[in-house]
Write a protein that binds this DNA or RNA. Structure first.
Length: 260
DNA sequence: CCCTATGTTCCCAA
DNA sequence: CTTGGGAACATAGG
């Protein structure tokens, strides 16, 4: 469920709460996650985002990698609160505890001993490589939306923001990506940055159950132009928003101002 | 019972 | 070999 803005929101909040704090204990409640050894007594020295994943660096150079997938959430409990249903692991500190709650149990947690072997992530906010993307895309026939969702090319865009970005730049989601001009790629770059940064400012999009570290809803759902607006009038033209399936994902667009 | 769901990975057919 | 589509993963809600 969380895309880049939601994960970025969590990372910023985690930095405030657990940076340089010692881990007292780790309790894995879902055996599906597997064992995570060697965390007790360590301090978390940095929290960074790699695409949609949270990376927590430890003071022994190991890294804890968390991917929330579809329904994963993190919750900070400062004082005692009950453990909510679907809690998958708990990391305890002296000043509170961090819970991972994940209804569908797709989230993954892993520890990497080496601090150096970071996967190379194409970060759209800091390093949007427009000309490189244009060159890669120029020879691919798949729909532009599928290309935007491929984390190998741009890391962090998911279904909601892909729909929003393509609407903003008036490109039809089914357009073969080889047909996107360099000029249009520059528009995609601009729209991606504007939309993702605004969504971060709003602490993400809550359309169903997304909550930030402190249990609050995001606010970007009030800014959405197409996602979830099937049948409603387009906010830019006189069309009405349609929802069709593209590679199994609900795809919202305006057939009137997003022509192929 | 049906369908839907903010993600990723694997399998298989073209 | 590459490409792309669909299923699978697991669960809740409409």
């Amino acid at each position: 469920m969380p895309e880049l803005p939601e994960v970025e929101t969590l990372c910023r909040q985690l930095r405030r709460v657990i940076a340089n704090r010692e881990i007292l204990s780790v309790e894995i409640l879902d055996p599906r996650l597997g064992a995570v050894e060697g965390l007790t007594g360590r301090k978390i020295t940095a929290v960074t985002r790699q695409g949609k994943a949270v990376e927590m660096k430890l003071d022994n150079d190991a890294r804890l990698l968390l991917h929330l997938r579809m329904t994963g959430k993190m919750q900070w409990q400062r004082a005692y609160q009950a453990v909510p249903p679907h809690t998958r692991f708990i990391i305890a500190f002296s000043h509170g505890r961090l819970l991972c709650i994940d209804t569908r149990r797709f989230a993954t947690l892993a520890i990497k001993a080496d601090g150096s072997s970071q996967a190379f992530v194409k970060e759209p906010l800091l390093d949007f490589r427009t000309e490189e993307l244009y060159k890669i895309a120029r020879v691919k026939k798949l729909p532009v939306k599928s290309f935007l969702l491929d984390q190998r090319w741009i890391a962090g865009i998911g279904n909601i923001y892909a729909c929003e970005i393509l609407h903003e730049v008036s490109i039809n989601p089914w357009r073969p990506v080889c047909g996107v001009s360099l000029r249009e790629w520059r528009k995609i770059e601009r729209a991606t940055k504007v939309i993702l940064e605004k969504a971060i400012t709003c602490r993400g999009t809550t359309v169903s159950d997304w909550r930030d570290l402190f249990g609050r809803k995001g606010q970007y759902q009030h800014e959405l132009k197409v996602y979830g607006r099937e049948g409603l009038p387009c906010l830019r033209c006189r069309g009405h928003i349609q929802r069709l399936r593209l590679s199994g994902r609900g795809t919202y667009f305006c057939p009137s101002c997003q022509k192929k």
